[in-house]
Write a protein that binds this DNA or RNA. Structure first.
Length: 575
DNA sequence: ACGCATACTTAGAATCAAATGA
DNA sequence: TCATTTGATTCTAAGTATGCGT
């Protein structure tokens, strides 16, 4: 039973905060871990014989390996990125590596390749998938459930826990975000021989698939992952880890917010400190102070340095370059304005014009002196130095704690501020508004939904319809009033008409509010902050105080993830 | 101080499933 | 009842942060 389980877990967590040292030695994450190993995607299924690939107009039967990789490309043909030079070149280079000698000799120009039949085959498959009957869907669902039951859970210290990503990533063409230099490269099939298994010595070690061996089996209880492999495109390690609703992840999440709350009580001192540091004789200290000012005020990310040419060109605070900011002594009636324009994580553009203090402004001018646009703004600073400084100010303090702290405190403040105006109107709307303020602060954007304009127009049409209805209702009310003239019989009718009119008015207002909400949300993603930055206890307490059902705010997955907060939070919780 | 490896969180898009309405 | 829309879930890339060897 999930509820007793969760309740018991929270009980354990509450103890663990107090007895942390006693429970495990530092760095030990578990005592027992058992699982079935990751689930591998199905082997490649060759195309039907009658399907052809054409090179330079000539029919050509590709070998299995070349065919498989060609199909990856053919499947993507509807996407814009298959037209990009970098993508095409990378794909072609890697595809040729999979060819036989003869194929490689013959196929030397991607432009001469015709994947049309492969592409159509794929589209047909997608269509078939879409048109599956209820029964077929049911059968597939059950088969999937069986896989999840077998591979999707593990035993960790007497708890059966869900695994977050127990499926090995299938092969395909790498799709980085933005202008990625490696887009189109072949992401190779992962075999058991590539996979490291991590589990208890005394557990039942997972069986590798028939005829295969694991790369390694280790028993490291200082880490939380169950399996890992190296991705051939980036050379990065990928991990199989627990689901967010697990005790291990929940505890970590709780800890994160507790650190952010500690920052709350010390932030005044820390701010005073970095304001003071703006005057330092040391250039490095001044740069650190300005960077911290940005991180605190604008919720910028730390900005680790990245290897050039390996990823898209994105930056965070410490890696800002001169070209990413513009200084305006005065702009739109404000003094000392900094104009930011850069690509951040996932190539999301950060654009903002912010008035800053005179001292910060002067420092920025100084940092930019005698520099080229491509030079680092903070040439005496990196994230390591910044975090080292921060951890000396408060244990556990790093740059990203500021984002968590500022996000959560903003939510709490906004909810308080919006409290008055949301009585009477929609409570949920005010919650969304507060959530949105945070999303804007953290620059969480999304591509507008494909059907946004259409759905907006539909809603607008409905509003118009309701408006007409309202005018009608008003007219009827007036008429009824006229006819009433002290007649107690018709007074009832007047009341009825009045009620109808009011109901109509309410519905109209609700729709208009919904329209505003949706419009304001067009390019803003609320889910990221809700899931990663907002202390769930703020939301749980708000729901209790406002008498709003929690499932109006959090869906099932979110309630699972925040089970710890749901059970421990009282009405009077304050971040 | 650095360069690199490791482990973990955060991120938006793609896909799938449920709800809604013609 | 079917098609469309919306919301939930899955996927995996892209960050942060820290430790280690030189």
């Amino acid at each position: 039973n999930i509820w007793t389980y969760s309740f018991r877990s929270v009980h354990i967590w509450q103890c663990s905060l107090v007895w942390e040292e006693e429970k495990y030695e530092a760095g030990i994450k578990w005592k027992f871990l058992e699982h079935k190993g990751p689930y591998f995607p199905p082997e490649y299924n060759p195309l039907p014989e009658n399907l052809n690939f054409y090179y330079n107009g000539e029919k050509l039967k590709l070998g299995l390996r070349a065919e498989e990789v060609a199909l990856y490309f053919a499947q993507m043909l509807d996407h814009e990125y298959t037209t990009r030079e970098v993508f095409r070149n990378n794909f072609f280079k890697d595809w040729r590596k999979e060819m036989t000698l003869e194929e490689r000799m013959l196929i030397t120009d991607l432009e001469k390749c015709d994947f049309g039949e492969y592409h159509n085959f794929h589209k047909q498959k997608v269509e078939e998938r879409k048109n599956r009957t209820k029964e077929e869907k049911q059968v597939l669902k059950e088969a999937n459930q069986k896989i999840t039951d077998e591979y999707g859970f593990c035993m960790l210290d007497h708890h059966r826990e869900r695994i977050g990503n127990f499926k090995i990533e299938p092969p395909g063409l790498f799709r980085g975000r933005g202008d990625h230099p490696k887009q189109g490269l072949l992401k190779k099939r992962i075999r058991p021989e590539d996979v490291i298994i991590n589990c208890s010595k005394e557990s039942h070690v997972p069986e590798p698939p028939a005829g295969h061996q694991w790369k390694e089996v280790r028993h490291d209880n200082t880490v939380t992952w169950l399996a890992s492999w190296t991705d051939n495109v980036q050379g990065a390690t990928k991990y199989v880890m627990l689901n967010a609703n697990s005790k291990l992840k929940g505890e970590k999440d709780w800890e994160k917010y507790e650190v952010a709350r500690q920052l709350k009580s010390r932030v005044d001192g820390i701010r005073a400190q970095y304001k003071d540091d703006l005057k330092s004789k040391q250039m490095g200290t001044r740069q650190r102070a300005v960077a911290l000012y940005f991180i605190d005020k604008l919720a910028l990310r730390a900005g680790n340095e990245k290897e050039e040419g390996e990823t898209a060109d994105t930056v965070g605070c410490c890696s800002l370059r001169v070209e990413h900011i513009m200084l305006h002594d005065s702009l739109d009636g404000e003094k000392c304005v900094v104009e930011f324009d850069f690509l951040g994580k996932d190539c999301i553009r950060y654009y903002n014009k912010v008035p800053v203090t005179k001292r910060v402004f002067k420092n920025l001018k100084l940092f930019m002196e005698n520099k080229q646009p491509g030079d680092d703004l903070f040439d005496r600073l990196n994230t390591g130095m910044l975090n080292k400084h921060l951890s000396s100010l408060m244990p556990g303090l790093t740059a990203k704690v500021f984002r968590t702290y500022n996000a959560s405190i903003t939510l709490q403040q906004q909810l308080k501020e919006l409290y008055d105006e949301c009585v009477g109107t929609e409570k949920l709307l005010s919650y969304n508004r507060a959530n949105r303020a945070v999303a804007i602060l953290c620059n969480h954007q999304r591509a507008p939904p494909k059907s946004f304009e259409q759905s907006m127009a539909n809603l607008q049409a409905k509003i118009e319809g309701r408006k007409e209805q309202l005018t009608l209702a008003k007219a009827e009310l007036k008429k009824a009033k006229k006819e009433a003239k002290g007649n107690s019989d018709t007074k009832l009718v007047v009341e009825k008409k009045k009620k109808a009119m009011q109901r109509c008015e309410e519905q109209l207002l609700k729709m208009e509010v919904q329209a505003t909400d949706r419009e304001e949300n067009k390019e803003i993603a609320l889910s990221t902050s809700k899931l990663n930055y907002l202390d769930p206890r703020i939301s749980v307490a708000w729901c209790k105080n406002m008498e709003v059902q929690l499932d109006k705010i959090y869906n099932k997955t979110q309630r699972d993830k925040f089970a710890w907060a749901i059970h421990m939070t009282e009405k009077d919780f304050e971040f």
